[in-house]
Amino acid sequence: MDLATLLFWIFAVILVGAALLVVGLRNIVHSALALVMVFAMAAGIYVLLSASFIAIVQILIYVGAVTILILFALMLTRITGQRQTNPANKLWPVAAIICIGVGATIIYAVSSSQMAVKNVVSTSEVAKQLPDNVVRIGQLLYSPIHYSYVLPFEIASLVLLVAIVGAIVIGRED
């Protein structure tokens, strides 16, 4: 077992455990703090996959912004007089059956697919082929001359603008 595999198992176990804590904890503020751990460990997984830009963006946006947003929403919608602020509804056996079914289907499909990747890519080989992740992603996103994603990028900025204006319009007091 090499270092990458060991790190993968550490990250994966903490990731799944923190996700179970997000779902299972009774106090929703504790759930939000476990969500920080989920996002940070997902960033670690991205580093393992040599996607350094995605890892940094994950830390910046999810850990930095989305969690703070969720904590602000929790502060503004304070439920008083309740010990259990993160209750589950009566449908949890149905939900458990649905989730186990979906997960079993995905795992079965992954393991029995004709397209399954059987070969192993060694880490050093991929690192040789991916010289600079950030530069390559920048070229793919912005470069107008060859095959790139300029139009989806602009549409994404429009989506963000609409989301900002919509959040202000919906959320303001009147």
Binding site: V16, V22, V23, A73, P87, A88, N89, L91, C99
Partner: peptide, 18 residues
């Protein structure tokens, strides 16, 4: 897949919208 299922369970079961 495992993480997706945990998230799906949370999204179905929880009563608090957040």
């Amino acid at each position: 897949a495992v993480l997706f299922c945990i998230g799906l369970y949370g999204a179905i079961v929880k009563r608090n919208a957040i």
